[in-house]
Simulated scan of single mutants.
Amino acid sequence: MALNLPSQRGRGRRAPMAEINVTPLVDVMLVLLIIFMVTAPLLTAGVPVTLPDSRAKALDQDQKPLVLSLDGEGKLFLDKDPLSEATLPDVLAQLAAKGDPAKPPQVFLRADRKLDYGHVMRVMGELNRAGYNRVALVTVGQDGQ
């Protein structure tokens, strides 16, 4: 049985504590992690679309893509702004005139899984006609993103 007796030299003085209490640091980091996990899905708020599943991996981005969305009712949105199919060719032509013709931006097409294939293909045809040939169909990957 060992006893830890104070020495005669350090009588009345305490030795400095050489340990760091990491419990508060871990608590703060866990709270921040929870906050980021809750708020991250809210940062990508847009048009509510039920995307199809896919096993494809995500694409690398070099510039901000143009996002076209088709919701479950067939309504068309450019980013978050509603758009009619009749005005789509004119809007795409205006965007193409503003951009660099040598390198058009990538287009993300988000279409609800309940939509008719022909409806999605009409929008893709208008994109191709306007010169947007880099079209990516957005899906939900294996990890839910």
Rank of each mutant, 00 (worst) to 15 (best):
R110P: 05
R110M: 13
V31Y: 00
P65V: 09
Q61R: 15
E19I: 04
V28S: 06
V67A: 09
L32N: 06
V22W: 15
D100I: 09
L127N: 01
I20D: 09
A102P: 02
K103A: 15
Q63K: 10
P104K: 02
D62H: 11
F108W: 14
L68G: 07
A96P: 05
V49S: 05
P24T: 07
T39N: 06
K57C: 01
A111S: 14
R110A: 13
R110L: 09
E85P: 05
V47A: 05
N128S: 12
A96N: 05
Y117L: 08
V26N: 06
L32S: 10
L92Y: 03
F36E: 06
L30I: 11
D100L: 10
L127P: 02
L25I: 14
V22S: 12
L76W: 12
D100H: 10
L83W: 05
L66H: 01
T39V: 13
A96W: 01
K103Q: 15
M29G: 10
H119L: 14
L25V: 15
D81K: 13
P101M: 02
V120W: 06
L92S: 03
D71L: 01
P89F: 02
L109W: 03
A102S: 13
L70W: 03
P48G: 00
K57M: 09
A102T: 11
E19P: 00
R110W: 00
I35W: 14
A97L: 10
V107T: 08
P24K: 08
A40H: 11
V120G: 08
V38A: 13
T23N: 13
F108R: 08
T87P: 00
E19Y: 09
A97T: 09
R110F: 01
Q63N: 10
A97W: 02
P65C: 08
G99I: 00
D81M: 12
V49T: 06
E19R: 11
L32A: 12
P104R: 07
T50M: 01
Q94S: 08
S54Q: 11
V123G: 04
A56V: 09
D53W: 00
L92W: 03
V91G: 01
S54R: 12
F108V: 06
V49F: 04
A93L: 04
D90G: 01
S69H: 04
E73V: 00
D79F: 03
S84D: 15
I34T: 14
G74V: 01
D100R: 07
L43G: 08
F77E: 03
L32F: 12
D71C: 01
V47H: 03
P104C: 07
Q63F: 07
A96C: 03
L66F: 03
F77N: 04
P82R: 07
E85Y: 04
T87Y: 03
V123E: 06
Q94M: 06
A58K: 12
D116V: 06
L25D: 06
V22Y: 14
K103R: 14
M37L: 14
D60T: 12
P105M: 08
R122G: 09
I34V: 15
A56G: 05
A86E: 15
F77G: 02
G99Y: 02
S54M: 08
V120S: 11
